[in-house]
Each structure stands twice: as structure tokens, then as C-alpha cells.
Design a protein around this nucleic acid. Structure first.
Lengths: 354, 354
DNA sequence: GAATTGTGAGCGCTCACAATT
DNA sequence: GAATTGTGAGCGCTCACAATT
């Protein structure tokens, strides 16, 4: 490796620069810049050579230099209305961190829950503000009017925790079906046979998937019918749903709520009825939000790596933005990440049948 | 205003640069750089002239250029063990956002709650990692060993939500005393006279301040004694404390818990005893964390603007770092921010005495 | 000699445009 | 002429060092 002797006026830098890559690939720095930014008019062989050099040298563009040189920093919008503060916190942390690492500007826009007009107005504010890409956490990504607002403006969308992938937008999610099936299998393995289920918001894909996963696990175990109650992902709906389920006879020995807020409400109802959790009733949730580890007993639940998912979403939207600016256009990506089952204190084998 | 004709090869920039400031102040750009970064060897008259020009032009350094040019980016450590996920989420959001805006690197280090050895190890990891400043959220800022680790390494500290200001470190906080007094006055204004109090973690300043505020308001109202129970800021301790308070006769008509987790636990105990909240018992919390708006009824509580506080903390620590690097040294700052009382559904006038 | 100020180059990238295929 | 590649300058700052008081 011959290095041109470096003047001692500056401290040594260690990371590879665009010049190193250019030299190795036998092209000019500008060509490297084009390839790295997804430029269109580059011969395929040139692109391959540059990408190889990039890989060899572990080249990563210096974001400070990039923005100084006048590259339009990407403006990524994050529209949020998700009722769960801790879900959103995790999204914000991942998105904020990754976009600062990537030198992109994250524009936050909050809107009230379930206020269709307000949501659309917030979306318009983002497009009017000139965002070049947008992240849509569940459940916003399922609202056709919002999606239309962005697609019509030519703004690429990445959905977080959508529960589904359609052809319209990229999405980063866990497999809700499998996660719910895993949790149900876990309850079955503990010995439960009468398991109640609290459904989530009607009409959202992730709710449906969770329910499908629950039912699939029951079917595997040869159990046909199960007590179910409709909820809508908030604590109060969990209170009512739990009361209904616990009024049934024979009473369930376990309740699987579609999210943690409703599971926490179920624990509260059980306590009110003098039931010990998990002695008399096992309760499990979904999401692993803050409340899961706050209440007592702490909730056994499914965890989504939300912070990481938000990071991935930023990377996807940035790639999309760059590709669009350079004239390219990649199809939507369905990025699945792994969930995990967090065992805490709210589930145990059922009590001996009296 | 005569402007040198600008070549059309680049898009027009609008923000003032260091050159504009230099020209206006009649010095070289390097001198401006020195002043802006808190350099030592600058004549007072020069500094004043530069600062005036900075003010006139609303100059703010371009962080991209700064880091490209090789300025050592500040490395700010954030050590956290705070049991409240949502408290920490807010801290993280503010700190992450502000440090990216300021071009500083935020290094996160998590440690287990109450594990003194682990906490110290995490602090050592930060100093060994070369952080040049550190943010310490409550309650870490009250641990002498941790504080010593940083002060001995010459690393400036900014405490968040410390509940007190001593001469050792800067701190950003609300006035816990006044906030607790406000909340107690609110309960009194509703007509409550038998108000129970759940204390926070023993030995922490913010707990003590909250208790003092509570007692001060009671004294104002001519109420001498009040039922109190010790808690330690978690849900479980709230359960036990609430049981004790509600067993007393005459029973309190309101309970003020030193944080939201314990207030939520109190609501749960009340429900278990068949008490309606707020019909039979008012319950209020402190902090306005996620759980406050999750459970039903939603908690009336005190809100600290934690995200903003974290931003301020970053700014303070950055100023401290720059000053130290440039040979200057400012004394610690006590930055008070305003709290607010959030009225929700968990408090109401007491029922008519039977 | 110490304190204060300035000079010239360079950080790593992308811009507008020119030159080549 | 269209597609592809390269050239030279410049973004706004701070570095090391030199020059001045």
C-alpha cells in the first residue's frame, strides 16, 4: 500500500474517503459520488467496480462534508398519532438517532388520535413543508386518505409496525400472526385450555393478524371455541372486555389481550374481583410498552424491537429518496424483524381444577 | 449594503457566515472563531465587537463545516438508570435532538437500577470512552461516587430534575417544592381536608422537596397532621402505601402520591376496595409519565417539561465543554423551568360527608 | 517573552459545467 | 445528440503556524 506522504498540518484521518474509493475503482471521485447516491447515468460495470471498492474499504460518506457541499439534506416527515406514548417514544428515539447519523432532517408532526380531518391536515402540513419522504407508524399507515396525500405528492412512505405489506409502500414490521401464535402456544404449554382473547382495534390489520395467530394456535391444539371480546387498544376498552370475559362460565384461566394497555386493565379487573394474578388468572399482553414493566405483577408480553425498526425505516426512506432524486425507483420493501416473548410474572400454569 | 457579486455556480446561501461576522467586526474569521468558541486569548474589546456583530447578523456556526474542519466534536455522555421508561424516553428525545442539532455526539450508557457497582462501572466506561461532558438524570446525580468519578476526570456534569442545586454541578429542574404545594392547594381548593401523602424514595432531594411542599400547603390551610406512608417510586410500593393510608380512620378523601406509578397503584387499590375514583377518593400523581394518561380514570398530575429540560441540559454541558477546552471556566448554573398542573379525571370535590 | 491577531491550507464532499465516448 | 465520465471550484469552518503588538 503506497500512501502519498501526508502533511503533518492535520491530524491523521482513518476512515476511507471518496478519493480512496475512486482511486481503488479507477474512476473519478464524482463517479463514486454518483454511484453512492444512486445516480442514473452510470454504466453498470462502473457501478459494480465502485461498489466493490466501497465494500473493500468499508466506505461510508461523511455526512458533514456532504451537507457542507450543498447536498440537499433529505427532509423526512414523521407523522404520529399513536395512542401509546412509549411506543412513540421508541419510534422517536430510533428515528431521531438514525436521521442525525445520516445527516437527514426529521420533521415531526403530531395529530390527534382518530381525528380524520386533523390527520389529513397534519399530512398536508408535511407535504407543504417539502418533506421528501415520510415515516408512518401504525395505525396511520392504514388510512387511505393520508397515504393518498403522500403518494400524490410523490413522497415515498415507509410504514412502521403495519401488520401487513401491500404493494403501495415499504414497511418494517414483525410478523404479528406468528407472534400471537407463539404467545398462545406458550399459554397452552403452561397447561391453559380456556383462554380468553381481547381483540384490538377493529379493522386494523395488525389486530386481525394477532387474532388469526391466536386462533391458529388453538386449532393446532384441537381447541375449537374460545371466549373473545372486542377492545380498541386502550385501557378503558380493556376494562370492559375483561369484565365480559371473566363473567363467562366456565371462566377462562388465562386472558390474552392484543396489547399491554388492555392487559393491564385486565389485571386491574381481576384484582377488583379478588382474583390473584397469575394464581387464579394468567394475563398476557402484546407490545412490551412501559406499562408492562410498571404494574404489578409485571406483564408477560411480546416485544417488538421498535427502536431498531424505526432506524431501519429511516434507512429505507432515505434510500428511496436518493433513488428518486437520481431518477431511479425501487419497488416497496417488506422488512420483517424478529419479535420476542418476554416472560415476566403475569402468567403461570392454571390452578388445579377445583 | 454593497455585496460582492456572487458567482452563479452555487445556490445562494442566506445565513450569515463567519466571514460576514468578521467583516462587520473588522477582524479576521479566525478571531471570530475564537470568540464564538470561548477562546481565552482575546482582548475584551475585540470580543465585544465580535459578539455585537454576531448578534446583529444572528450568526450561528454551521455545524457541518465545523466538524468537517476537524473541530473535535463534543462527546456527551448520558448515564441512565431511571426506573421510569417514559421519563427516560423524554430525556432521550430532547437530548438526542439537541445534540444532533449542535453536532455533538451523544453516548448513551444504561445501568441497572440501584446497583451501585454497576452504576460506577457504567460511569467509568463513559470517562474511559473519552466523554467531555455528561448529563445525569435524577436520581444518579445524587450518588456521590458517580459524581466523584466525573469530577475527578474533569468532566463537567449537568443534572436533570435533580430537585436541588448545589455548588458542584449545573442543574436543570422544576421547583419540586412549589409544584407539590400547587398540587396540594388544588386538592384543598376542591374541598379536601383529609389528604393522604405517599412519599417517594427515601433520601432523594426531590422526594423531600415534594413532601415539604405538601406540608407547607397544609400548614397554610391550618391543617396540622396528615396521614403519610413511605413509598419508593414504584408501583408495588404504591400498592402497599395506599393500603395503609386507606385503612386509616377517618379515611382520607384524597391521596397525593409522589409520582404517577404510585398514584396508578393507588387507583388500583381503591378499585379493589370498591371505591370509585374520583367519586369516593381523589388520587393525584406527579411527573405526567405515560401511565398517567393510560389508565382509567386518567391521572391529574404535575408535568415537568422533560424534553425541553434535556435540551437545556445539552446546551449547558456543551457551553461548559467549550469553555473548558478554551481555558475558561464558568460556575455551575441552576436552571429552573416551569411545571404545570395537568387536570384530568382522577380528582374531584370530596363526597358529602355521610 | 507573552498575549493577541492573522494567513494559508485543507477537511470530504457535490455543484455546474466541460469533455469524452 | 444522448449517455457517461471528469474537472475545478467552492461549501464554512478550524488547523498549525506565522506575524504582530
Amino acid at each position: 500500500m503506497s500512501k502519498t506522504p501526508q502533511k503533518n498540518t492535520r491530524k491523521q484521518r482513518h476512515a476511507a474517503t471518496i478519493h480512496d474509493v475512486a482511486e481503488r475503482a479507477g474512476v473519478s471521485p464524482m463517479t463514486v459520488s454518483r454511484v453512492v447516491n444512486g445516480g442514473k447515468n452510470v454504466r453498470e460495470s462502473t457501478r459494480a467496480a465502485v461498489m466493490a471498492a466501497v465494500g473493500d474499504l468499508h466506505y461510508a460518506p461523511n455526512t458533514a462534508a456532504r451537507s457542507l457541499a450543498g447536498a440537499e439534506g433529505a427532509r423526512v416527515g414523521l407523522l404520529y398519532s399513536n395512542p401509546s406514548v412509549s411506543f412513540m417514544s421508541e419510534v422517536l428515539i430510533g428515528a431521531l438517532d438514525e436521521s442525525s447519523r445520516q445527516g437527514a432532517l426529521l420533521v415531526l408532526e403530531k395529530c390527534a388520535i382518530g381525528d380524520a380531518a386533523g390527520e389529513l391536515a397534519a399530512a398536508r402540513k408535511l407535504t407543504a413543508g417539502g418533506v421528501t419522504g415520510v415515516i408512518l407508524p401504525s395505525p396511520l399507515c392504514e388510512h387511505p386518505a393520508i397515504v393518498a396525500e403522500f403518494t400524490q405528492a410523490g413522497v415515498p412512505i415507509v410504514a412502521i409496525a403495519a401488520g401487513f405489506a401491500n404493494g403501495e409502500m415499504s414497511c418494517v414490521r414483525i410478523d404479528d400472526f406468528k407472534a400471537a401464535r407463539d404467545m398462545t402456544r406458550y399459554l397452552l404449554s403452561l397447561g391453559h385450555r380456556r383462554i380468553g382473547f381481547i381483540k384490538g382495534q377493529q379493522g386494523t390489520t395488525s389486530s386481525n393478524e394477532r387474532q388469526r395467530g391466536f386462533e391458529a394456535a388453538l386449532r393446532e391444539a384441537g381447541i375449537g371455541e374460545a371466549p373473545m371480546a372486542q377492545g380498541c387498544f386502550n385501557y378503558r376498552s380493556g376494562l370492559e372486555a375483561a369484565e365480559k370475559l371473566l363473567a363467562q362460565r366456565p371462566a377462562p384461566t388465562a386472558i390474552f389481550a392484543s396489547n399491554d394497555d388492555m392487559a393491564a386493565a385486565t389485571v386491574s379487573v381481576a384484582h377488583r374481583m379478588g382474583l390473584d394474578v397469575p394464581g387464579d388468572l394468567s394475563v398476557v399482553g402484546f407490545d412490551d410498552t412501559a406499562i408492562a414493566a410498571t404494574i404489578w405483577p409485571e406483564l408477560t408480553t411480546i416485544r417488538q424491537p421498535i427502536t431498531d425498526m424505526a432506524r431501519v425505516a429511516i434507512d429505507l426512506v432515505l434510500a428511496s429518496i436518493r433513488a428518486r432524486e437520481a431518477g431511479g425507483e425501487a419497488g416497496p420493501v417488506d422488512h420483517l424483524v424478529l419479535h420476542s416473548l418476554i416472560e415476566r410474572q403475569s402468567a403461570a400454569p392454571p390452578a388445579m381444577i377445583a
